[in-house]
Computed example of a mutant assay.
Amino acid sequence: MAAQERPPGSRLGRRNDPERRDRIIDACLDLVSRSGVAGTSHRKVAAAAGVPLGAMTYYFDGMDDLLKAAFTRFATMISDRFERRMAAATDPELARQAVVAIILEDVFGDDRELVLSHELYTLAAREPAFRSITTAWMGRSRAALERHFDPETARMLDALIEGLTIHRALDSQARDRREVEVAVARITAR
Rank of each mutant, 00 (worst) to 15 (best):
A144P: 04
G36V: 10
A47V: 04
D17N: 15
D22G: 10
D65K: 05
E179W: 00
L114A: 08
E113W: 00
D111N: 08
A55T: 12
E181M: 07
V115Y: 08
A27K: 03
R20Y: 00
A124R: 06
V180W: 01
L66Y: 09
A88K: 09
D65W: 03
D22V: 08
T135Q: 15
G50W: 05
A69P: 06
D80V: 12
I187H: 07
S117M: 13
R81E: 15
V107T: 09
M63R: 15
L31Q: 11
D61T: 12
A3R: 13
L116D: 01
R6M: 14
V184D: 03
R11P: 01
E19H: 11
G50S: 10
G139H: 02
S33C: 02
D61L: 14
R175N: 13
E119L: 10
G163R: 10
D61E: 14
T165D: 05
Q97C: 08
T122L: 12
A48W: 01
R190K: 13
S35Q: 11
K68M: 15
A169R: 07
L157K: 03
L170F: 03
A125N: 11
L67A: 09
V99S: 01
T90E: 02
A159C: 03
F60K: 08
A2H: 07
S79K: 04
E83G: 10
G62Q: 01
G139W: 04
G36W: 14
V180M: 00
A49V: 07
V107Q: 10
